[in-house]
Design a binder for these strands. Structure first.
Lengths: 222, 222
DNA sequence: GATAGAAAAATAGGATCCAATATACAATCA
DNA sequence: TGATTGTATATTGGATCCTATTTTTCTATC
């Protein structure tokens, strides 16, 4: 009889589950910005006491996904257009650098995986999934840079703007430019041209940012 | 009888105080990496229950200053040399960009403040204070960039490596190069040469990183 | 003496209770 | 009617208690 060892240790605490669930709900936009996150209500939803809920809320706050005021409670954080612009600019800087560093270490398997995500992105019709596939495509390439700290900061930045991107993609039914840009980046990676891949990544992010900001100016005035 | 209104609202919760105190102790190196952060013990130290302590610990963990394992407790986080190298490289990238963006917006008052910090840095004899003054000098200039998100990530990065820098500065009784480099950066700022200020900042950070890594290789083997 | 297992102690996670504060609402007075 | 004050309610912050898990210690056995 052949068998494998299974790690039976419980790794997910109640706080972990509440945190992950709320995090996904916030970055997907399911929980609108400004929405109140009531400890009692959330605790009832998850069949727990308020203690693990409070831990989840402080984690969200530390990541900038929620803001709290003493004795007044916690709400889903929102970003101004200026803040969104800054985050895109930041992403462009980091992701361009990560892409440059990744190119020399890309292997066949990784490139093939990236190509699959690229096709998947083009084929996907559900706007709610574009964001995830997009992230997987880029991260597949980025990981070859072996810069976990950079990627962590990029991930945090992405978490903050994801909902606005999703809103835009859902409304405009997708910007087809992204697909072409992915192909161009992938081509530069295959060619081993780090500078070009980096520059294209930078432009790709800045383009997305400009497009999103234009969309938001239209749809929330100012 | 003349009197003024005083904002009597309590802004600092017990969790805030515990968090700030522990944070400072960790980044200063007062709490060594790997040291156990026992909820009970800390609660007694602050005359509170474990609840605010737990909140402080989760905040520390989210910022990478502590790591916790379920049912096993929380310890002060440490960084490998590779991780330290990555953080310096990251800082160099961000801080060079922030410096470039800041130069056009620097005014007389800001430059004068920076100059004061620069002198203060040279005059200070207590190695424990160099790190703080250094941070103030750079931040005075950086803030003119109006990039709060960038600065937040730089702050988080600095928090993680501060204790290693302090250890080095205390041991070697300071690297005098930093003082000259500060003056050169300041001169470029005064001259309004954004590119030069940016390049010097980048080199300044990378130099400090290389120097620190060399020191650490010496003092913890590997 | 070393080792395995059981009991005990230590410690973290979570539930429930109380206190502090904020908000909503009703009563009062001009 | 409109502003203001007092009161009730809702909600968060913190304390205490209980439970789950880990770690340590003790003991029996070889």
């Amino acid at each position: 009889m052949k068998f494998e060892a299974v790690d039976v240790r419980q790794t997910a605490s109640a706080a972990d589950i509440v945190y992950e669930t709320l995090r996904k709900a916030i970055i997907s936009g399911e929980l609108a910005e400004g929405a109140a996150l009531r400890q009692d209500q959330i605790a009832r939803m998850f069949n727990t006491s308020r203690i693990p809920v409070r831990e989840a809320l402080t984690r969200l706050e530390q990541h900038g996904l929620a803001t709290s005021q003493r004795y007044r409670g916690t709400i889903v954080a929102g970003l101004s257009i200026v803040e969104i612009e800054e985050i895109f600019e930041f992403r462009a800087l980091i992701e361009a650098e990560v892409m440059r560093l990744a190119v020399p270490d890309l292997d066949e398997v990784t490139l093939e995986t990236a190509r699959r995500h690229c096709l998947e992105f083009d084929r996907e019709t559900d706007p709610g999934r574009w964001s995830d596939i997009n992230r997987r495509f880029h991260y597949t390439l980025y990981e070859a840079s072996h810069r976990p700290y950079y990627l962590q900061t990029v991930g945090a930045a992405l978490d903050r703007i994801d909902r606005y991107l999703r809103a835009q993609l859902t409304f405009t039914n997708g910007l087809m430019r992204a697909g072409r840009e992915h192909e161009a980046i992938l081509a530069a990676c295959i060619a081993g041209d780090a500078e070009r891949a980096s520059r294209l990544t930078r432009d790709h992010v800045l383009d997305a940012g400009r497009s999103l900001v234009a969309f938001l100016r239209e749809h929330r005035g100012a």
